[in-house]
Design a protein around this nucleic acid. Structure first.
Lengths: 337, 337
DNA sequence: ATGAAAGCGCTAACAA
DNA sequence: TTGTTAGCGCTTTCAT
């Protein structure tokens, strides 16, 4: 690996000049610039970005911590963030927390130890209190898909209350009145918010949320299968189900299948997320879409802006709206189709 | 941010001693160590890992370039690599190529510019020739899920020939003789290898590969849907289909559904990959499993070993075997179940 | 427009 | 066991 010093020797100039020729071309004479270019070429010189970072105190690197990379949910957000950052010459260091609080804590710290200018955190395990403490302690952090009122301007999030309301509104508009729901774990604010919006919207239609038709899941398919079985075996009838994740909808569909129930003829189902899975289920799943890629990209840009103390933080969209994607899993009771 | 110099002053020792106390505790007196610990605590000192890297010429960072992070295929491998590396104190810098050859080239280079000790590449767009050139030029690189005979010991891969053979064997064992297949793009070695193994295995059973029943897809569902429609509308009959990815199987299933064909009663389908999608399809998809997480982990470990010029490169499993996961999409013609 | 020199935060000989 | 002195590869004053 050639160093700047070797380039300087070869070009017959000082290292400072090489540095300038490369980074501030307007500050150097055309002739010198040519000599430098030439030397750079022949040596195949490439600046050591770590050394550049140390000297200039800017690593042009953003960190991100998520539970895991293997799921479409996290993968899509990371993809959005990475692409957005790459466009502005930034790199992403990704670390997974292993779905544990301790993992989140250490990943967060460790990314700063690597001189990330800012870190994007998708916290799942940290209690709100501790999370607030971290946001306070590490001002160069932004929360992805999470809303912490105290740190409003460092959060990129989906309006989950509205997302839940959208699901209810869709089902009600299709004529459903007896509606069951399988939520995420209540320790997740997303789950609570979606349920809250769902309940409020039902209330507006004069439908009380029925506790007997409300089950707490964990966003995964297996548990949703169990919950749905229990719901189906219970005494209460219902014509529609809202699942707070597409994966849970998949589990619920499986339960229906085993009970010989047809979707949407016997029971309608609406999911949440709109990951690829949704359109591969049968029937194709009507769901509430989260713009995950956009959320990831916004988190990347916000992290960059925060790191640079850029004034246009305000210009970055931080609150996203869900949207229902209508497919084939909800029956219209009004028309019967 | 406290620096090592401040710690040194506070502890009344030299920076060298602080460095030793932290990195080679056995080399320093217990009393001094205590003083240092104390200073570290009170200042909240954390070593700047970038500076450490520059000084010690080891960044403890591995890079990885993939097409994108959003799909389960890449996500799962990255997850495997990241976890394996985290365990040994290494970090992963991830960069996506944007599914273009130029993206792969620049990502590869740029990760080395960031002083990654080694980089893991999942190449999709680079021609074999150029890929070979890069492996030659960058000895600290390993290929993930790709086999380049010239660089045997820097590749972690699935035996795709055997994978294809497994699919054929399964179908033949179930009594199928008229078998169609939708492959990946032939520009991908995976696609060619799987087809080769598939053809060889069929040949062993005395079944020639029928060109009219062989269609080239692109691993995606949409194109598989088109191909399957064409196959179904064609003059040749067949009882089974092998798709080289689960996503394509999903597309093919959709085509069957639109034609009113039942799976597996009218037509059997076997996929490849065994991503989450497979068990969510209906019927649940019988498929050839790739151990993606293990492959990713092995790639991470191999990259580390290569970077460290470790002798136990040989000890890392580099060749993985596929395995068929039997679910419900293949009918046994022998028993009719 | 260019060079000399200092320094980013740390490690690693070499002495003592 | 500890301190001194050089760097690692670069950027950035400050002179010239």
């Amino acid at each position: 690996m050639a160093t700047i010093a070797q380039v300087a020797v070869k070009a017959g100039v000082s290292t400072a000049t090489v540095s300038r020729a490369l980074n501030k071309p307007e500050m150097v004479d055309a002739k010198t610039k040519a000599k430098v270019q030439e030397a750079v070429q022949s040596l195949g010189y490439r600046p050591n970005q770590v050394a550049q970072g140390l000297a200039s105190r800017s690593s042009r690197t953003i960190g991100v911590v998520v539970n895991q990379f293997g799921s479409a949910y996290y993968g899509t957000m990371i993809d959005g963030a990475e692409r957005a950052l790459r466009k502005i010459g930034y790199k992403l260091i990704a670390e997974s927390s292993g779905e544990a609080a301790e993992g989140e804590r250490s990943a967060w710290q460790s990314l700063f130890d690597r001189q990330c200018e800012a870190v994007i955190v998708h916290s799942d395990a940290l209690a709100e209190e501790e999370l607030t403490g971290f946001m306070e302690k590490h001002p160069m952090s932004v929360l992805m898909n999470r809303h912490l009122p105290d740190y409003e301007d460092r959060c990129v999030y989906l309006d989950n209350i509205r997302g839940g309301a959208l699901a209810a509104a869709h089902l009600v508009a299709k004529g459903h009145r007896k509606i069951a729901t399988i939520t995420g774990p209540f320790s997740y604010h997303e789950a609570r918010d979606r349920l809250k919006g769902f309940e409020q919207q039902l209330a507006e239609a004069g439908i009380p949320l029925d506790p007997d038709l409300t089950a707490e899941g964990n966003f995964k398919d297996d548990m949703a299968f169990e919950r749905m079985m229990a719901l189906l075996n219970g005494p209460k009838e219902f014509t529609a189900l809202f699942c707070q994740s597409d994966e849970m909808a998949a589990g619920a569909i499986e339960a229906c299948r085993q009970k010989g129930l047809r979707i949407p003829d016997d029971i309608s189902i609406i999911g949440f997320d709109d990951v690829d899975l949704a359109r591969h289920l049968s029937p194709k799943l009507t769901t509430v879409r989260q713009p995950l890629r956009e959320i990831g990209a916004a988190a990347g840009l916000l992290a960059h802006a925060v790191a640079r103390k850029s004034p246009d933080i305000e210009g970055i969209c931080r609150s996203f709206e869900a949207e229902v994607i209508e497919r084939a899993s909800v029956l219209d009771l009004n028309t019967g189709s």
